Simulated assay, not measured.
Amino acid sequence: MQLQQVIIAHKAGNPLSQRWAQTCAKQLERRDCKVLLGPSGAKDNPYPVFLASATQPIDLAIVLGGDGTALSAARNLAEEGIPILAINVGGHLGFLTEPFELFRETEGVWDRLRDDRFAVLRRMMLQAALYESNRRDLPAVSDRYLALNEMCVKPAAPDRMITSNLEVEVDGEMVDCYHGDGLLVSTPTGSTCYNASANGPIMHMGLEAISVAPICPLSLSSRPIIIPPRSVVSIWPLEDPDLHTKLWMDGVLATSIWPGQRVDVRMADCQAKFIVLRENYSYYQTLREKLRWAGALAQYSDYPQNGTLN
Rank of each mutant, 00 (worst) to 15 (best):
L93M: 03
L96Q: 02
T97M: 04
T97E: 06
E98T: 07
P99I: 06
P99G: 06
F100D: 15
F100M: 15
F100P: 13
E101D: 13
E101M: 08
E101A: 14
L102F: 07
F103D: 03
F103K: 01
F103H: 05
R104H: 08
R104L: 08
R104Q: 10
R104G: 04
E105T: 02
E105Y: 06
T106D: 04
T106Y: 04
E107R: 03
E107W: 00
V109I: 08
V109G: 00
W110S: 00
D111G: 02
R112Q: 05
R112W: 00
L113F: 00
L113W: 01
D115T: 06
D115V: 01
D115C: 03
D115R: 10
D116F: 11
R117E: 06
R117Y: 01
R117T: 02
A119K: 07
V120E: 05
L121N: 09
L121Y: 10
L121R: 11
R123D: 05
L126F: 07
L126I: 04
L126R: 02
L126P: 09
L126G: 03
L126S: 01
Q127T: 14
A128M: 09
A129H: 08
Y131W: 07
E132Y: 12
E132Q: 15
N134K: 14
N134G: 13
R135A: 11
R135P: 08
D137Q: 03
L138Y: 12
L138G: 01
L138Q: 14
L138P: 02
P139N: 06
P139S: 01
A140M: 07
A140D: 00
V141H: 06
S142M: 06
S142E: 04
S142N: 08
S142Q: 05
D143K: 13
R144C: 13
Y145P: 12
Y145A: 14
A147V: 10
A147Y: 11
L148T: 08
N149M: 05
N149K: 09
E150G: 02
E150S: 09
E150C: 03
M151D: 07
C152T: 13
C152R: 05
V153H: 10
V153C: 10
K154C: 13
K154Q: 15
K154S: 15
K154L: 13
K154E: 15
K154F: 13
K154A: 15
K154Y: 10
P155Y: 09
P155G: 09
P155R: 12
P155E: 04
P155F: 08
D159H: 15
D159Q: 12
R160H: 08
M161I: 14
I162N: 13
S164Q: 05
S164W: 10
N165V: 13
L166R: 01
L166D: 02
E167A: 07
E167G: 09
E167R: 12
D171T: 03
D171V: 04
D171G: 07
D171P: 12
G172R: 03
G172S: 06
E173S: 15
E173A: 10
M174H: 11
M174Q: 11
V175C: 03
C177G: 02
C177M: 11
Y178N: 02
G180K: 05
G180S: 06
D181A: 08
D181E: 04
G182F: 11
L183I: 10
L183F: 13
L183K: 11
